[in-house]
Simulated scan of single mutants.
Amino acid sequence: MRYDLVIFDNDGVLVDSEPLSNRLLAAYLTELGHPTSYEDSIRDYMGAALHRVHDLVLERTGQRLPEEFDEVFHRRVFAGFERELQPVDGVTDVLEKLAADGVPYCVASSGSHERIRVGHRKTGLDRWFDDGQVFSSEDVGRGKPAPDLFLYAAAGMGVPPERCVVVEDSPLGVRAAVAAGMDVYGFTAMTPADRLSGVRGHFADMRQLVDLLS
C-alpha cells in the first residue's frame, strides 16, 4: 500500500444512498415551488452539504428555503434509509482487506454525523467505523468543494495530506480532495468518468479499488 490513510466519501461510496436522497431532495424542492428533477439534483447537489442547497436556491430565486427544511429533509431521508438503504456492493470486501492489512481508513462526508450513523447502522457498516474514524462537514466551516473536511480528517487521523488517498464519486468531492493536495480515485457507478477530472484513476466496481491502491 503506497498510502498511509484511505479516506472514503460516504454517500454513494460506502452506502448506496445517492439515488434515494436525490430523489427525495428533488421531490421536496419541487413541492416547495422550486421545480427540480432527479437529474438536476444529481448535477447540482450530489456530494454537497445541505448549505449548498440553501445557497443555490437563494442565488437562483431570491427566496430562502423554510427554516425547517433541513429537519424535514433529514426525517424523510432517514425513513427512506430504514426502508431501502444498502451498502455499496463490494465495499465490505475492501474494508475487510484494509483492516486485515492494517491500513488506516476513515470516512469524510458532507452528510451530518447523524446521517452517517443512521446509514452505517442500517447497512451494518458501523462495525467498521468507530467514532474516531468518522468526519462530517458539520465539523468544519466549509463543506466540499472546499478542502477543509479532508484536511480535518487527515489531521484527525495524524496523517499528512500527501500520504492520503481519497475515494470519491462526485465532482465536488474530487475538487475538494485535489485542493487538499491528496490523490483521488473516482468511483463511476453513478457519475460519468469525464465529470471526475483530476483523479489518478477511475473504477466502476468497488472491488477494483484494492488493486488500484496497491
Rank of each mutant, 00 (worst) to 15 (best):
D9V: 05
D9H: 11
V13D: 00
L14D: 06
V15F: 05
V15D: 06
S17H: 10
E18P: 08
R23E: 15
R23K: 14
A27D: 13
A27W: 02
Y28R: 11
Y28S: 02
E31P: 08
G33M: 11
G33F: 10
H34F: 15
P35D: 00
S37M: 11
E39T: 05
E39A: 14
S41L: 00
I42S: 01
R43D: 04
D44T: 04
Y45Q: 02
Y45A: 00
G47Y: 01
A48D: 05
R52I: 13
V53E: 04
D55P: 00
L56P: 00
V57R: 04
L58I: 06
L58P: 02
E59V: 03
R60N: 14
R60S: 13
R60K: 15
G62R: 01
Q63V: 11
Q63K: 15
Q63T: 13
R64Q: 14
P66A: 00
F69M: 00
D70E: 12
V72C: 03
V72D: 10
R75I: 01
A79Y: 11
A79F: 13
G80Y: 09
G80V: 09
R83L: 10
Q86L: 12
P87K: 12
V88K: 09
V88A: 08
D89C: 11
T92H: 08
K97T: 15
A99V: 06
A99L: 10
A100M: 11
V103H: 14
Y105A: 01
Y105R: 06
C106T: 04
C106W: 03
C106H: 02
C106L: 11
V107F: 05
V107Q: 10
A108G: 07
S109I: 00
S112V: 03
H113E: 09
R115F: 06
R115K: 12
R117T: 15
V118R: 14
K122S: 13
R127I: 05
F129H: 08
F129R: 04
D131G: 12
D131C: 02
G132D: 10
G132S: 14
R142V: 12
R142Y: 14
P147H: 04
D148L: 01
D148C: 02
L149G: 05
L151M: 08
Y152S: 01
Y152K: 07
G156V: 08
G158T: 07
V165K: 07
D169K: 10
S170M: 08
G173L: 13
R175K: 15
A177S: 05
A177H: 05
A177K: 02
V178I: 15
V178E: 14
A179D: 13
M182F: 08
V184I: 07
V184E: 08
Y185L: 14
G186M: 01
F187Y: 15
F187N: 05
D194R: 14
G201R: 12
G201V: 01
H202M: 09
A204I: 03
Q208T: 00
L209S: 06
L212A: 13
